[in-house]
Design a protein around this nucleic acid. Structure first.
Lengths: 143, 143
DNA sequence: TATTAAAATTGTAATCATTACAAAATAGAA
DNA sequence: TTCTATTTTGTAATGATTACAATTTTAATA
C-alpha cells in the first residue's frame, strides 16, 4: 500500500506538479495494479472527488505517460489501459473473458536499446494473447 | 512478387473463399509489406476496383486476421495496420516520423506457448518504439 | 437455362473512446 | 491583494471502426 508521500514522490520524480486530481489518479494507479481504463479510474474516483472531470483524467493520464510515471497498455483494441508498474514486464489478454494481467518475460531486461538497423529503442511492449487458466476449460467453445 | 496463384493459395490455405475483392486485398498485402491501414488499402485499390466499398475492406481484413492469413498490428494508437508476413517478428514505430517497420527479434521462435501461470498463449506481439535512423539526427528537437 | 438459397458486397448511419477548445477556477509569486 | 500562469472543467468535435439492411453475386440443382 503506497502512502501519500510515495505518490507525491512518484509525481515529483517525473516532473509532474502534484495537484489534488493528479495525486488521486496517481494514487489509484499505484494502489490498484489492475490496468484500469480512463473510464474506470473516473468512475472509481468520482464519488470522493465529485467535481472531477473525465477530461482531467484523460489529460492527466496522457501527461503521466509522457513523463514516464505510468505505462500505457494498448493490448485491447477498444480502450487504453494504464499501469503504475513501470518496471519492464509483458502483458497478457484472454481472448475469451477479456481479462488483462501482468506477464513476466524472462530476459526482458537485457533487450538491447540499440537495434541492428540503427534505430534508437526507447521502449518495448510485449503483448501475449490466448486463454487464461479458467477459460482454457472451455476450449471446446472456441470458434 | 507473388502471383495470383500464390494469393489464391494463401486464401484457400486459411479457409477464405477467394472473391475478386478478397483476392485484390490479399494480393495488395502480400506484395506491399508496408503495414498499410484499411484506408490506405482502400485508396490504393479503389481506382482499379471502382465499386469497392470501404466496408468490404474492413470486413475482409477482419476475416483474414481471424483466420490467420494476416496479422493485425496495433502499434499505432489511431489505426490498425495489417501485415501479410505471418512469420513471427516484432515491429518498430518511430515516435518522431511515425514510420512503422519490421523488427526482427532473436529467439522469438522459442517463446513458450505455455506460461508459468497456466495461460495458453496463442499469439505474441512485440512492439518497439523509439527513433529511426533518420530521426535520431534530430534528437535535440525531442521534447 | 432457369430457379433458388446462401454468401458476399455495398452504402449509410451509428458508435464511442479520445481530443480540441475555450471558459472558469486555482495556485503561486510579487 | 493583484496579477499571471497553470490547471481543471464541460461541451462539442473527431474519426476509425462497426452495425445493419438492402442489393448483388455465387453456385448448386432442377
Amino acid at each position: 500500500m503506497n502512502t501519500k508521500v510515495d505518490v507525491k514522490n512518484r509525481l515529483l520524480d517525473f516532473g509532474v506538479k502534484p495537484s489534488v486530481q493528479r495525486m488521486a489518479i496517481m494514487e489509484y494507479l499505484m494502489n490498484n495494479l489492475i490496468h484500469p481504463t480512463a473510464d474506470t479510474i473516473f468512475n472509481q474516483l468520482s464519488p470522493s472527488l465529485p467535481t472531477l472531470s473525465k477530461t482531467t483524467v484523460y489529460n492527466t493520464l496522457k501527461l503521466l505517460e509522457k513523463r514516464g510515471a505510468v505505462i500505457a497498455i494498448h493490448i485491447d483494441e477498444k480502450n487504453i489501459r494504464y499501469d503504475a508498474n513501470i518496471s519492464p514486464h509483458g502483458h497478457f489478454k484472454c481472448k475469451r473473458c477479456g481479462c488483462v494481467s501482468d506477464f513476466p518475460v524472462e530476459g526482458i531486461e537485457s533487450i538491447s536499446m540499440e537495434s541492428p538497423e540503427g534505430q534508437l529503442i526507447t521502449e518495448c511492449q510485449l503483448y501475449f494473447k490466448g486463454y487464461c487458466k479458467e477459460c482454457r476449460k472451455h476450449i471446446n467453445e472456441f470458434t
